[in-house]
C-alpha cells in the first residue's frame, strides 16, 4: 500500500474544521486511504523515512483509521474521538441510556426534542454517553444516523 500523504494545506484545512469541536492539535501524520478515508500515524518516521522504509515491503496499513472526509466535512471515527477526548469540548450530543443501547446495536436512533433543537446546524456532532465518546453522527429527519462500525456493535 503506497502512502498518500496529505499536503500541509490539506492538514491545515482539516485542523480548521475540527476546531469547532475544541480540537486544537492533531498530533499525527495524516495519510489518505482511498479517496475519503484518513489514517493517523504517530510513529517516529517522517514522510521521507516512510517512503524509504516501504521499498520492497508489502505494507498493510499505517496507524489507525482516523476520519472520513464527507464533502466539506470531517467525521472522526470512534477511536479518533476516544484518543482526542481531552480536547473535545464542543458540539457534543449526549445520548440517553435507551438511545445508547440502540446505538450500540447499530440502529439509527430517534432524537428527542432537545437534541433536535441542539442539532439545527447541519453538521456532525460528537456522541457521548456517560464518559464514553461514540464517534460522530448527524441528525437527519429527527434520526441520529448510526456510523458505528459493524464489528463494534453489540450483538444481541
Amino acid at each position: 500500500m503506497l502512502p498518500q500523504f496529505i499536503t500541509h494545506k490539506e492538514k491545515k484545512e482539516i485542523a480548521e474544521k475540527l476546531k469547532v469541536y475544541g480540537i486544537e492539535k492533531i498530533p499525527y501524520l495524516l495519510l489518505k486511504s482511498g479517496t475519503e478515508r484518513l489514517r493517523a500515524f504517530s510513529g517516529n518516521l517522517t514522510e521521507q523515512d516512510i517512503l524509504k522504509f516501504i521499498q520492497n515491503i508489502h505494507i498493510e496499513g499505517y496507524g489507525l483509521y482516523f476520519a472520513r472526509i464527507d464533502g466539506d466535512e470531517v467525521r472522526l471515527t470512534i477511536d479518533a474521538c476516544q484518543l482526542l477526548k481531552e480536547q473535545i469540548k464542543h458540539k457534543i450530543l449526549f445520548l440517553t441510556e435507551k438511545q445508547f443501547k440502540e446505538y450500540m446495536e447499530g440502529k439509527d436512533v430517534e432524537a428527542n426534542k432537545e437534541q433536535i433543537e441542539q442539532t439545527k446546524e447541519r453538521m456532525y456532532y460528537v456522541l457521548k454517553y456517560g464518559e464514553d465518546l461514540l464517534g460522530m453522527a448527524k441528525v437527519v429527519n429527527n434520526q441520529i444516523k448510526n456510523y458505528l462500525p459493524k464489528e463494534r456493535r453489540r450483538k444481541s
Partner: peptide, 14 residues
C-alpha cells in the same frame, strides 16, 4: 489494532 487505538504501527504482511 483499531479497536485498541494503536497509532504508532506500520503493519506488514510478508
Amino acid at each position: 489494532m483499531e479497536r485498541c487505538g494503536v497509532s504508532n504501527v506500520i503493519m506488514t504482511q510478508m
